[in-house]
Write a protein that binds this DNA or RNA. Structure first.
Lengths: 121, 121
DNA sequence: CTTCTATGTGTCGGCCACCGTAATACCTTC
DNA sequence: GAAGGTATTACGGTGGCCGACACATAGAAG
């Protein structure tokens, strides 16, 4: 799990950082906090949950039985909390680096600054 | 290529947003802008470059021959520029969502702020 | 001279997270 | 009783990344 988190996994941890949720609730919460851009598939969700529990980033909070069906709630472990914080910091640095370069690029492409703009032709 | 970019690919585009670079220069540039956390392997680098050129996000800028060996420079295409900008925005939203939830969490765990901290119990 | 390290590009096999889909099961609504 | 939302589980496929290797040149170290 030292691999950088992919987006679905990152969003699962982010959703669980707010409150314990069960699988189907996670699908809706992730859709909500990504403005509908990310829709978790069952294969992604439960596969990720198994991995995260196995890695100790997520714990099983409790299990309820509603209408004869099992409903398992997951919550973020302290390790998961720290991992999410570290991962967020890493992403923040990447975003800042990319933003800085894109900004320089916009300046170079738009010679609105009169100084030394049109070198050639 | 509608899959969200993984970290190595994202950093390659970010590096190319600064200036055209050849393969080995990319390895060093990515290492620099990630503070040494990401070291591109040849398999990752050239595989990614082939994909990016094929997808139209990266163009071959020019080819030089130094000491009898080919040195190929790559640069970011307009499509790659737009993709990197969109990807950066997506990451920024994810970072903000995670940061907000982590902050709420820290407040809940540490009721050090006397005002309206412990709502329950 | 040989060996090691750095520069530099390229290929191949394998892993694993994610995806797509279907199956299962209960309840409510039409 | 067919349809649709809730909820979990299982399985095969795809694709990006990694690890290791191959090849070539040049300078430093032994």
């Amino acid at each position: 799990m030292d691999t950088p988190l992919r987006e679905p996994t990152f969003l699962i941890l982010t959703a669980l950082a707010g409150a314990p949720l069960h699988g189907y609730g996670l699908i809706r919460e992730v859709a909500a906090l990504s403005d509908g851009r990310v829709t978790l598939r069952p294969g992604t969700l439960y596969g990720a949950l198994d991995r995260l529990v196995d890695a100790g980033l997520v714990d099983v909070d409790r299990e309820e039985v509603v209408d004869g069906r099992l409903r398992r709630y997951y919550c973020l472990s302290p390790v998961g909390d720290a991992t999410l914080a570290a991962e967020t910091e890493r992403l923040r640095r990447n975003v800042e680096a990319a933003t800085a370069r894109l900004r320089e690029r916009a300046h170079a492409a738009r010679p609105a600054t009169p100084r030394a703009a049109g070198g050639l032709a």
